[in-house]
Design a protein around this nucleic acid. Structure first.
Lengths: 192, 192
DNA sequence: ATTAACTGCAACAGTCTTGTAGCGTTTTAT
DNA sequence: ATAAAACGCTACAAGACTGTTGCAGTTAAT
């Protein structure tokens, strides 16, 4: 099921196209292949050589993006590092990945596809981590972990929008985790 | 600057078109005018009679949607009702509005447009309410109100996605507010 | 009842986009 | 060095969508 290995220059082209497509399509999801080609510094026919359809291109982008996302999570050592440290590091890594692959990661994955499988796996890793954090007593014992995960995703997404979207990822991650764990209510006197 | 008042049937058509367009475009933002017309039970040319461009249609949808959103907020009596009661009621109303106008409300408003102005006004009403809630001591005294508002928006948006998107709005609103105020961390012993 | 507005239908021109094909040139692999 | 692979370029076919126009029939307002 593996395709013949591409020549070095071809592989470079594919990379360039995928990255250019992300830039262009994240700015305008309805952009034409021509615009993508121009942004990639490549002829439109070259894109069609590697990707039969527009859909094939988008699928490849989604696959690349979710792979990067997965790596961003693994790099945080969710199994071995102290859970809260891992959560912070993962959040930072994911923020970086999401700014670079906003469009591709926003694409809905076909139900049975490889990408969908990887997304589920990522979600599961996330749930595992939250479970470990809960066992530390930092998450409420009876909290809905799935809802917590969704809120976590939403907070990450929101952090990429406002004026502060370009701020230091460490700061953004801190705010995300603080909000996720404590909300906006009054801090406990002794915590302050 | 006001246009001539439309005849009764024409006004009905406009309504029908706007609602059909929302249904179709929320499912597929790239749908053609033809598909919108079919969903509205109307000839395509009728749409073009009322809306010069596709953009004009989308703008009208955005205007209608943000008007509904504004009404949803005012119906919660943010000025007069007890702040937390108002917050709950507003959340319920906004949830209902957002499911009906998901596409239109997701459209970015042109910087100087009327819609943009109304969005800002809505955001301001929201900030006012949060300010009042903070003064009750239910929000942390030093919390970033603007960030709180953005988190509130994000939680509402997230509530419309999962399997429970169709659940009782009162329940969803309760979860949103609980998460916003307390986060996912452990509850205080005496609160439980 | 009469008028004006509105709608459906059919047809049309114009544009944009996609996808394919051929050919000469450049780059890579061995 | 040579052969295969990849690329840019041009051209073309096919289709989709948009926006407009004209006309005949229907509906609402006075």
């Amino acid at each position: 099921m593996t395709t013949k290995p591409l020549r070095a220059d071809a592989e470079r082209s594919v990379r360039t196209i995928l990255e250019a497509a992300e830039r262009v399509l994240s700015d305008n999801p309805a952009a034409s292949m021509e615009q993508v080609a121009e942004a990639a510094g490549v002829a439109r026919t070259t894109i069609h050589r590697r990707f039969a359809n527009r859909q094939a291109l988008v699928d490849a982008m989604a696959a690349t993006a979710v792979r990067h996302l997965s790596e961003a999570i693994e790099a945080g050592r969710p199994e071995t590092a102290p859970p809260l440290v891992a959560l912070h590091q993962i959040t930072v890594n994911v923020l970086r990945t999401k700014v670079s692959w906003a469009f591709a990661l926003g694409q809905p994955a076909a139900p049975g596809s490889v990408v969908a499988g990887m997304q589920q796996r990522v979600a599961y890793r996330c749930l595992e981590l939250f479970g470990r954090i809960r066992d530390l007593g930092v998450l409420d014992a009876e909290v809905d972990l799935e809802w917590t995960r969704r809120v976590y995703y939403a907070l990450i997404g929101e952090s990429l929008h406002g004026d502060d979207a370009g701020a230091d990822p460490d700061v953004l991650a801190g705010r995300i985790i603080d909000t996720l764990l404590r909300g906006a209510g009054p801090r406990r006197p002794e915590t302050r």
